[in-house]
């Protein structure tokens, strides 16, 4: 087959679009880990729950846009309940306690969804305004995937502003560094953590709703998401927003280009990158060393 410039360009752009989805999957996980040092194994389940909340809302309201707007806060509220009543009692007990808890939580959430919505996958149509393909000059590209890229950019911008430019963000950053000192200064750190956990799970849910038109909705859809989110988070550095962005894009592009030149290695490529990063820079590309210590 011929390697034309158009094909290369399309493959590269496909990688960027895939990378944007990977960033979206990883950001929530990375945020919760960076601020709370909680390894949230239920991340994929919250993603799946977001997609189902989207199905339910789109069914009630008849509009994808309401689903996109309302599903994340709905799931975030559930996430905050989990943080308040299940995870908070485990703080200070070592990193494996919340890990095991969220691991079990994920199983419960998947089973609950199977009981309510059934085991079979459900269809989810691409919203009408975003159906079809848009011309990029060298090729046509699905309009919906372009929309997802735009949402991811907007989300990252909003997160960056929240964490770097607001008083709340200042407390979050300080709390992540040294919660004891922040507490001594009279700040209720547990309330901040509650909000951060809510934001993290809300972003997972947003990713779920956005993924629904790409792949439909099924109770198992979160399983592979967890893998991708972890790899991106580890490569980028646990807790680093910048790291998640760079790692997500890097992995998306490498995977896409690998399909062109060495297809059998495409899916493995992300693990190769992870292994290499862990060997050369154990804290990840942008991570702080010693976060897990």
């Amino acid at each position: 087959m011929n390697l034309t410039v158009d094909l290369l360009a399309l493959q590269l752009f496909t990688g960027v679009a895939l990378g944007a989805i990977y960033v979206l999957l990883a950001v929530g996980l990375s945020l919760i880990f960076g601020m709370l040092t909680v390894v949230n194994f239920a991340h994929g389940a919250f993603f799946m729950l977001g997609a189902y909340a989207g199905v339910w809302l789109a069914d009630r309201t008849g509009s994808f846009w309401w689903a996109l707007l309302l599903a994340p806060p709905l799931v975030a509220a559930l996430g905050m309940l989990c943080e308040r009543w299940l995870i908070r009692p485990l703080y200070g007990r070592g990193i494996d306690y919340p890990l095991l808890l969220t691991f079990g939580l994920a199983y419960m959430m998947v089973e609950a969804v199977r009981m309510v919505f059934g085991k079979a996958a459900l269809p989810f149509d691409t919203p009408e305004a975003l159906q079809g393909a848009t011309s990029l000059g060298f090729t046509d590209f699905p309009t919906y995937r372009l929309f997802v890229i735009a949402v991811v950019v907007a989300l990252l911008l909003a997160l960056w502003l929240l964490i770097e430019k607001t008083p709340f963000g200042l407390i979050v950053r300080a709390g992540a560094r040294d919660p004891v000192i922040v507490r001594v200064l009279g700040v209720d750190v547990s309330r901040v953590w509650l909000v951060v956990f809510g934001v993290g799970t809300g972003i997972a849910a947003l990713a779920g709703v956005l993924s629904a038109p790409l792949q439909g909705v099924s109770p198992e859809m979160g399983t592979s998401v967890l893998t991708v989110a972890f790899v991106v988070t580890v490569v980028g550095g646990m807790g680093s927003l910048m790291g998640a962005v760079v790692a997500g894009l890097l992995i998306g592009i490498v995977e896409s280009m690998a399909v062109l030149f060495f297809p059998e290695a495409a899916k493995v490529s992300m693990f190769v990158i992870m292994a290499a990063v862990l060997l050369l820079r154990p804290q990840g590309l942008f991570g702080r060393a010693g976060l897990l210590a």
């Binding site: 087959m1 011929n2 034309t4 158009d6 094909l7 399309l10 493959q11 496909t14 990688g15 679009a17 895939l18 989805i21 090729t139 995937r145 790409l214 792949q215 859809m221 592979s224 998401v225 995977e255 896409s256 399909v259 062109l260 297809p263 495409a266 899916k267």
Partner: peptide, 15 residues
């Protein structure tokens, strides 16, 4: 069990 097929499609399209 892949969930995103976008990377496989440009090649098939070019064929």
């Amino acid at each position: 069990g892949a969930q995103d097929y976008s990377t496989f499609l440009p090649r098939l399209k070019a064929l």
